[in-house]
Design a protein around this nucleic acid. Structure first.
Lengths: 114, 114
DNA sequence: AGCCTAAGCCTAGACTGTCTAGGTATGAGT
DNA sequence: ACTCATACCTAGACAGTCTAGGCTTAGGCT
């Protein structure tokens, strides 16, 4: 489950250069050491969503008799990629703070002390 | 937006001791240094979901004339809390790998090289 | 020829989790 | 009387992901 972070990851991959949907899935799998093995039904809609939002642009190309729709970042997409990344960092840091926070006295959270 | 990580965070807070819904929201806000300021409409349903799943148990208590529903971890909930945390770590690590991955040659991702 | 797999694209609908936006009630302070 | 903080709740909207299909071409195998 990608839980809303898919867009940022797709944009991150595209930062390194244009890619088509199928290759993007492979790139995500390889970059994550196999952790992200996303179904096409997740990635294609995400790409369409990003294109509708103007963050990526697409064009058709041909390779080995197979047609590919190749996506690349727009200018706003490149900016969005950086934003998503820094949003991730602060989100991730906040989660870590919650996980790593020290125990607090039970009285602060309404625990039953009797 | 909590993007599916809310359960893990709630369980993490409850690991430190029982809490009621409203106090849990405050605890999440404080632990995250203000980053997580969750609406009640997110947290209460999450608690009910966790209770239905048997990960937390609740009971009513009274404090200052106000009734509180206090939640605490069950045994399976305590185990789930650890699982969620380690799931988070591997998820987070995978995301970091994607963000931090070096650029690869365009040919690997179907880029238009012409 | 027939079959299977990999490479490539797509989408409708189900599902799930979060948030919006409302509601109720008590106690304390002005 | 009024407002604010505390404390609970839920229906329905919304958004993102996944399931489960569909389509096509190329290439390998029998």
């Amino acid at each position: 489950m990608m839980r809303g972070h898919l867009d940022g990851l797709v944009l991150a991959v595209l930062t390194a250069g244009p890619a088509h949907g199928y290759g993007l899935i492979e790139a995500l799998r390889e970059r994550s050491d196999g952790f992200f093995d996303l179904p096409e039904g997740s990635v294609y809609p995400a790409l369409h969503r990003l294109e509708r939002a103007g963050l990526v642009a697409s064009g058709w190309s041909e390779a080995g008799g197979r047609r590919r729709r190749v996506y690349s970042l727009t200018t706003t997409g490149r900016r969005a990629a950086q934003e998503r990344q820094s949003e991730w960092r602060s989100f991730s840091a906040a989660v870590e703070r919650v996980f790593g926070a020290p125990s607090r006295p039970a009285s602060q959270t309404g625990a039953v002390t009797s």
